[in-house]
C-alpha cells in the first residue's frame, strides 16, 4: 500500500494542501497583504487632512530619505540596545538552559515552569514592577550605593541601562527556551563520551555540547533581538526621552501624529535592516535552519 521508510502516509495527494490552505490563506490576507499596503502607504502622500486622510500613491521616495535623515539616532540606538540586550540574555540564558537540560533532575519541569511563568503575567505590569524595583528609593539603588557600584547620575531608572536591562529581562524566556530545546536533543551518551575523551569539562563542552546547541542559540538570539529592536515599552517606562527607540517613533507617527506615510517608511526601513542583519548573521553562524 505504501512505503514505510518515510513514516508518512500518503492517502491522498491533495490532503496536505487542503489542511494547510486555511492557515496559509489567513496569513496571506492578514500578514502578507498588509505588508503590501504598508509598502504602498510608505510611497504615498496625504493630500487630505489629518482627520480625513486621503492617500495618493505618488511614489514619494522622499519618505525614505526623510526616515533616515530625521531618525538616524533612534535607529542606531534601537540596534545598539537590542544588540547589548541580546548578548546579556545569552550570557544569562545559556547557563540556565544548560542547568535545566542536564542538571535539574526532577526539578526540570519546575524550572521550565518558572521560565515560562512571566508569560502569564502581563508584560506591561511586569515592566511597571521593574519601575518600582529600579526606582531611586528602591532597594537595588540602595544596595548599589552600599557596594559603591557606579551608576550614571547615581540612579538606575530613566537611564539607558534600565532600558537595556528591561529588554533583556522581557525577552529572556525567548532565549532560554530554544537553547533548552536544542540541548535537550543532545544524547547524554555523547556528552559522557566527550567527558571521557577530553579530561577538562570545559573542553568537552566546547567540543561537543556548544556546537550541537548552536541552532538553539541562533533561534534564541533572533527571537530576542528582533522584538527588542522594535520594542518601545521598555524605553517608554524605564527610560527617559533621551532613550526613545525607533518603535517609539513609529508608534507616535502612526497613532498620535497620524503621519501614516512617514511611519510606514520607518517600519519598512526597520524591517529591511533586520532582514539584512538576520541574513548576515545566518551566514556567519553557518546555519540557515530556523526551526
Amino acid at each position: 500500500m505504501r512505503g514505510t521508510a518515510t513514516g508518512g502516509a500518503k492517502r491522498s495527494r491533495s490532503a496536505p494542501y487542503l489542511l494547510g490552505l486555511p492557515a496559509l490563506a489567513y496569513l496571506g490576507i492578514f500578514f502578507v497583504i498588509p505588508l503590501v499596503t504598508l509598502l504602498k502607504m510608505s510611497l504615498s502622500t496625504n493630500v487630505g487632512s489629518v482627520y480625513e486622510p486621503t492617500m495618493v500613491l505618488d511614489w514619494h521616495w522622499a519618505n525614505y530619505s526623510d526616515a533616515f535623515s530625521s531618525y538616524g539616532a533612534q535607529f542606531s540606538r534601537s540596534f545598539l540596545y537590542a544588540g547589548i540586550a541580546t548578548v546579556l540574555a545569552l550570557l544569562l540564558g545559556y547557563p540556565l538552559a544548560y542547568v535545566i537540560a542536564f542538571r535539574a533532575g526532577r526539578y526540570k519541569n519546575l524550572l521550565l515552569g518558572l521560565v515560562i511563568l512571566p508569560f502569564f503575567v502581563t508584560f506591561l505590569v511586569r515592566t511597571l514592577a521593574w519601575k518600582t524595583i529600579l526606582s531611586d528609593t528602591g532597594w537595588v539603588v540602595s544596595l548599589f550605593d552600599l557596594l559603591h557600584v557606579p551608576m550614571p547620575d547615581g540612579r538606575l531608572l530613566s537611564t539607558s541601562w534600565a532600558v537595556v536591562f528591561g529588554l533583556t529581562y522581557n525577552f529572556l524566556p525567548f532565549m532560554v527556551l530554544p537553547i533548552y530545546v536544542s540541548l535537550e536533543k543532545i544524547e547524554l551518551s555523547l556528552v559522557d563520551a566527550a567527558k571521557d575523551l577530553y579530561s577538562a569539562p570545559w573542553r568537552a563542552f566546547r567540543a561537543v555540547v556548544l556546537p550541537l546547541s548552536l541552532p538553539g542559540v541562533f533561534a534564541g538570539t533572533l527571537l530576542t533581538f528582533i522584538p527588542a529592536a522594535g520594542d518601545f515599552i521598555n524605553a517608554q517606562y524605564l527610560g527617559s526621552a533621551q532613550n526613545a527607540m525607533i518603535g517609539t517613533v513609529i508608534q507616535k507617527q502612526f497613532i498620535v501624529v497620524k503621519d501614516y506615510p512617514a511611519a510606514a517608511a520607518l517600519s519598512f526601513v526597520l524591517m529591511a535592516m533586520i532582514l539584512v542583519g538576520v541574513l548576515v548573521y545566518a551566514r556567519v553562524l553557518g546555519t540557515e535552519e530556523l526551526t
Partner: peptide, 22 residues
Amino acid sequence: FLVLPLTTPEVVMGASLLTLFL
C-alpha cells in the same frame, strides 16, 4: 513562511495591519 511572523517586529505587524484596515 510560518516562521516569518515570529521574525517580524510587532510594531511593523501592527502598523501594516492598520494600513490594511485603513
